[in-house]
Design a protein around this nucleic acid. Structure first.
Lengths: 217, 217
DNA sequence: ATAAAGTAAGTGTGCACTCACTTGCCACAA
DNA sequence: TTGTGGCAAGTGAGTGCACACTTACTTTAT
């Protein structure tokens, strides 16, 4: 039976969907092609050819071409921000609250790893969000909106402990995100280069801590 | 006569090309449509309708649909990085060399203004560079490559004066760029919002100076 | 035996681009 | 000033092709 979009959108990741070999190969082919040429410049016959199946098979598995896109991006979108927000919450659940630098390092390493692992999805996602205003609006309202309020609370916490500067939490989050993006984006444009996670994490943390940290005297 | 792509690519800006009213209206319509829906989802008949001309006229002015894209992006690409590099060089020509913060503030204000003014072109450019590997390669080799060497020299200069930390200049440039992008990108996704240049500049400079500056004792 | 999985040749539509034609512009002669 | 020839600017119906999707059929699995 053809994959239902809703089902795919709420699955934790592609691997956790029950997929046959052929379904996986169609998704894998689409992921490659979409990220290389863009969604619109990829034809369904291309996908079929690269996946090594007939075009009819593609349509037995996914009702529409856009269904493939949603199956690829759904799990990704679920994880871009909420996971980071989850980390923040975990910190509070933990009675032994780490200092800000430790906390920051954990998140940066986690998100950089995520970006590196999901490089192709990230590239497709950015393309899509820039040319599809519905998707942009949905993403901002549902995903970003929810994350902001939770993250804000954590920032205020560390501000009260006088570990970081007293700027608007949104501003601080912006810097953390954009500094990480500064490492991730060049890798999207030149996909052959691989991100050195450890070194990148060290550099990001070093820069951010100078930028927003407060030295204990 | 139809606009020659080469001519368009090397013109300083669209305004400096000699354009008839109809040519301008085609370009204006394309700029809007491409930035809203993306190049591939915009049809030439859409462009003609929005521009208020016939489809034939569009093709009298531009040989192909891609010609329109190049006419829009050419002048933009000429200015994204080289202008910034030019600023760097000016600093050296000037006998009265400013301190790093002054210098940084000038560049940040200049580039943020440029991004805000050319918001739509920037959006189209990012879409294109993510789905067109030729364009990505050309941009990196010609535009980025040339700029890096010149900027590196300037950073080393300020490092020798002990005004900024002794990190790889490329790394420093990365932070300056990505911090500015952190302000520009949200505006691309939500085009109705307008960037407050003055405040953004102050914030960027404040953060970057903390992040890479060295306090004189 | 039957139902799902797979196939590949269709089918209709939308699109980039063309072409045969009309309109508007202007130099210049009467 | 006005008529006229020539040429660029403009038009929109037309053309062919590529693509998303369907359908009638065959293979495979149980």
């Amino acid at each position: 039976m053809a994959i239902n979009n809703v089902e795919a959108l709420f699955a934790e990741s592609l691997n956790e969907l029950e997929l046959t070999k052929k379904q996986k190969s169609v998704l894998r082919a689409s992921l490659t092609l979409f990220s290389e040429q863009g969604f619109d410049r990829t034809s369904t016959s291309d996908i079929a050819r690269v996946a090594g199946v007939s075009e009819g098979t593609v349509y037995k598995q996914f009702k529409t071409k856009e269904g493939i896109l949603k199956a690829l991006l759904g799990p990704f979108i679920q994880q871009v921000l909420p996971k980071a927000a989850g980390e923040f919450l975990d910190t509070f659940a933990n009675t032994n609250v780490p200092d800000f630098e430790t906390f920051l390092r954990r998140i940066v390493a986690d998100r950089l790893t995520f970006f590196e692992t999901n490089k192709l999805q990230l590239k497709i996602f950015i393309q899509e969000i820039l040319s599809n205003s519905d998707m942009a609006a949905t993403f901002i309202n549902k995903t970003v909106g929810g994350a902001i309020t939770r993250i804000t609370a954590v920032m205020k916490f560390y501000q009260q402990k006088n570990e970081i500067v007293d700027w608007d939490p949104v501003r601080i989050v912006r810097y953390i995100m954009s500094t990480m993006l500064g490492y991730a984006l060049p890798n999207l444009i030149q996909p052959d280069k691989k991100l050195n996670i450890e070194q990148s994490t060290d550099e990001v943390v070093e820069f951010i801590m100078r930028g927003i940290g407060i030295k204990k005297s």
